[in-house]
């Protein structure tokens, strides 16, 4: 397509559409339900992208990312409430706490592979949940923490309008995605690909598999911790059950990646765009019959995985390839006719 001398190829067109799509919510009603859902979609996309770093790139399937999410939320919130430290600094502190937790966890964990790794991470998040419930002096226990709403200010990470939160969440998604992209390309991308495909062969090719896996999982934990802070500031309330939730956080972020496309840059966004609205619709329209909502969403998700086991992003790629083939065939015919 040619437009005022600028050639617009399909790739830039897609990116332009995407950029516009990110801008649309800025015009939405700041107090509206819709903007909140859109923000949740992008936030979950960011969380899933954090998971994608270790789950998609290093192929270490974690079912306990709620642990790092919760550590980030608790660290920044407690620093803010008890010490008056800005949640922006708390966000980095939360990331560090999450990364250190991953480091300690890696000592026993990296001896495990596959299902056992997944189960151990799942257990870790559950243990943190119980700790948060029982050490009430530190964490306020099972009642959870409400962040006091003060004067809206940037330093306090409190904004008057939800539009500002939306901007922060989009920026968070952009940062995590940039990190993911950096890790998935270049020499590091090859290292991770080698580890993913055959760890032994990677080892004898001179790749320090242990250190690379540890590094990526710490980056993943760090970014997940940052997401925890943003979530806490966005919702103003959380408790151990919701923040360390297995189904609500850990499994959900993994599922978003699996549905969208594991190890792929745009997989988490695609997955979040499907999963979060689906859950929301199910809650709003099918709550009369107990269990109907989760049942319907589960059926849809199972169908999606059967239809596209490598994520919905591969459906998009197939469409594109078909279009390219058609295009090539047409231009070939045209050339033949001449």
């Amino acid at each position: 397509m040619k437009f005022k001398g600028v050639t617009l190829n399909a790739r830039t067109a897609v990116y332009l559409c995407l950029a516009v799509a990110f801008l649309i919510p800025l015009g939405m009603d700041p107090d509206g339900y819709l903007l909140r859902i859109v923000s949740m979609v992008v936030l979950f996309a960011a969380m899933a992208q954090a998971w994608n770093i270790v789950g998609g790139l290093a192929n270490q399937l974690s079912l306990g990312h709620a642990a790092f999410f919760g550590l980030g939320a608790y660290t920044s919130t407690l620093l803010f409430i008890r010490q008056g430290i800005s949640p922006w600094a708390g966000m980095l502190a939360g990331g560090v706490v999450a990364a250190v937790a991953m480091l300690l966890l890696s000592i026993p964990l990296f001896r495990l592979r596959g299902h056992y790794f997944a189960l151990a991470t799942l257990a870790f998040a559950e243990v943190l949940k119980i700790i948060a419930i029982h050490f009430a002096d530190l964490t306020e226990g099972p009642t959870g923490i409400t962040i006091p709403y003060g004067e809206p200010s940037f330093a306090n990470f409190q904004f008057e309008s939800n539009t500002s939160y939306y901007v922060v969440i989009v920026a968070l998604f952009a940062v995590v995605s940039l990190i993911f992209w950096k890790l998935s390309t270049g020499a590091m991308g090859f290292r991770l690909r080698a580890i993913r495909e055959n760890e032994q062969a990677a080892e004898v090719s001179g790749i320090d598999t242990y250190r690379i896996k540890l590094g990526t999982s710490m980056v993943s934990a760090f970014t997940m911790g940052m997401c925890g802070t943003v979530y806490a500031q966005f919702t103003y309330f959380f408790d151990p059950e919701s923040i360390f939730s297995m189904t609500g956080i850990s499994v959900r972020v993994a599922l978003i990646c699996i549905i969208g496309g594991m190890g792929r840059l745009w997989g988490p966004l695609i997955g979040a765009c499907i999963l979060i609205p689906l859950d929301e619709i199910a809650v709003n329209t099918m709550s009369d019959v107990a269990g109907l909502g989760p049942f319907v969403t589960s059926v849809i998700l199972i169908a999606a995985i059967i239809y596209e086991p490598r994520g919905l992003i591969s459906a998009w790629e197939r469409l594109r390839r078909r279009a390219q083939k058609k295009h090539a065939a047409q231009s070939g015919q045209a050339a033949g006719a001449v």
């Binding site: 690909r193 495909e197 320090d208």
Partner: peptide, 23 residues
């Protein structure tokens, strides 16, 4: 450390034909 050894000039072909299947 194992990662520094190939650089010195040791090539290792592990047992069981470990290739990168999707490369």
């Amino acid at each position: 450390n194992g990662k520094d050894i190939p650089k010195l000039g040791i090539g290792h072909v592990p047992e069981g034909r470990h290739v990168f299947p999707k490369m």
